[in-house]
């Protein structure tokens, strides 16, 4: 019988160094999200789908992955590329559409992939990459390696047909994949309780016969633990796992013309109180595994890295028109 367990215990098997590295990444993503949002509102690029408040998920889930493991990303937030090693400079280059960028100015940067780091391209069609993720897992199976794929998607995508088809296929073929739902309870302005028959995303996993875990998505160690179990199961040939992480975004769906969506100040405040960055900070300080000077130093380094990236990108040149016509075909 597939198991659903609520994971809120923290892991005690990480070293000080690892925990501090998690913090460093989370605060880098947080500072990045703040600036990415602000620069979009200032008109430097058309749109940004912020993930402020959701930093624990990319850091916890991707912490133990190797570059051969694939992650399919969503349109929201760039925490996965950042945690897997894409520089904020490259990401801003992509956001600003500069010539010297991995995307060469052609695409919204959440479509960018960095295959060398295992970051596989995303899409604007939420949920459409779920079958693609199953396809990558299929390729791994044919190659007889034990690489794993994590397919990230949100609560909105869970209602798409591709969600059903991609997960069902992975289930029948017992693919080495983790289906990872970042449930932030709103799809654009649509709250979960109005969009999702049955009221639960994770219970859908039962229908596919998949083991599943419901996780506090703002507890980086719980995310880490759950993903570690799911990845281990996949690597050992145990097939797919479905993880649902409960989290929340502090910002509207995007910066482009979106009004603030209908949620209460109380709701926002209650989630801000569960800030994933603050929670790890508190844990590290309480246990004495880090000092506040060390943690401040990470924060300052993050801000510096982002400032340097912004300085560079604001002076960087745009691509020439010929770039628009290239790479349509091989």
């Amino acid at each position: 019988m597939p198991k659903t367990t609520k994971k809120t215990e923290t892991a005690n098997n990480l070293t000080d160094r690892q925990l501090k590295e998690m913090y460093r990444r989370m605060v880098l993503i947080r500072r990045f999200e703040e600036v990415a949002f602000e620069k979009a509102l200032a008109g430097n690029y058309a749109n940004y789908h912020g993930a402020m408040g959701q930093e624990a998920i990319p850091v916890g889930a991707c912490f133990d992955l190797t570059p051969e493991d694939g992650t399919m990303i969503t349109h929201r937030g760039l925490g996965v590329p950042i945690t897997r090693g894409v520089t904020v400079k490259d990401i801003f280059a992509g956001l600003y559409g500069r010539a010297d960028s991995p995307t060469r100015g052609r695409i919204p940067v959440y479509h960018m992939g960095e295959p060398k780091l295992g970051v596989l391209t995303g899409t604007s069609m939420v949920g459409s990459v779920i079958p693609l993720a199953s396809g990558k897992a299929l390729a791994n199976k044919l190659d007889k390696n034990n690489n794993v794929v994590i397919s990230f998607f949100g609560d909105g995508a869970a209602n798409r047909g591709d969600f059903h088809e991609g997960i069902n296929l992975a289930g029948v073929w017992n693919l080495a994949i983790v289906f990872f739902c970042e449930n932030n309870f709103y799809a654009k302005s649509m709250p979960l309780e109005k969009s999702t028959a049955g009221g639960s995303i994770i219970r859908r996993a039962d229908g596919y016969g998949l083991p599943s875990m419901l996780v506090d998505g703002n507890d980086v160690l719980a995310v880490y633990d759950a993903t570690k179990q799911a990845v281990a199961r996949a690597r050992e040939g145990g097939g797919p796992t479905f993880i649902e992480c409960e989290t929340y975004r502090w910002t509207p769906h995007s910066t482009a013309g979106d009004r603030e969506f209908a949620r209460t100040e109380e709701e926002l405040a209650s989630w801000k109180a569960k800030c994933p960055v603050r929670r790890l900070e508190a844990l590290l300080l309480e246990t004495g595994q880090a000092s506040s000077e060390e943690l401040n130093a990470f924060d300052e380094a993050a801000q510096r890295e982002i400032e340097e990236a912004i300085d560079w990108v604001e002076k960087a040149s745009d691509p020439g028109p010929e770039v628009a016509l290239e790479n349509v075909y091989v």
């Binding site: 079958p131 396809g135 390729a139 047909g161 591709d162 296929l169």
Partner: peptide, 23 residues
């Protein structure tokens, strides 16, 4: 030689995903 369920989106999508990594 893979028989699939009636899932054209998954057939095409998974083929795209596999092709992206060299199949």
């Amino acid at each position: 030689v893979r028989d699939t369920p009636i899932s054209e989106a998954a057939i095409v999508g998974s083929s795209v995903g596999a092709a992206l990594v060299g199949c």
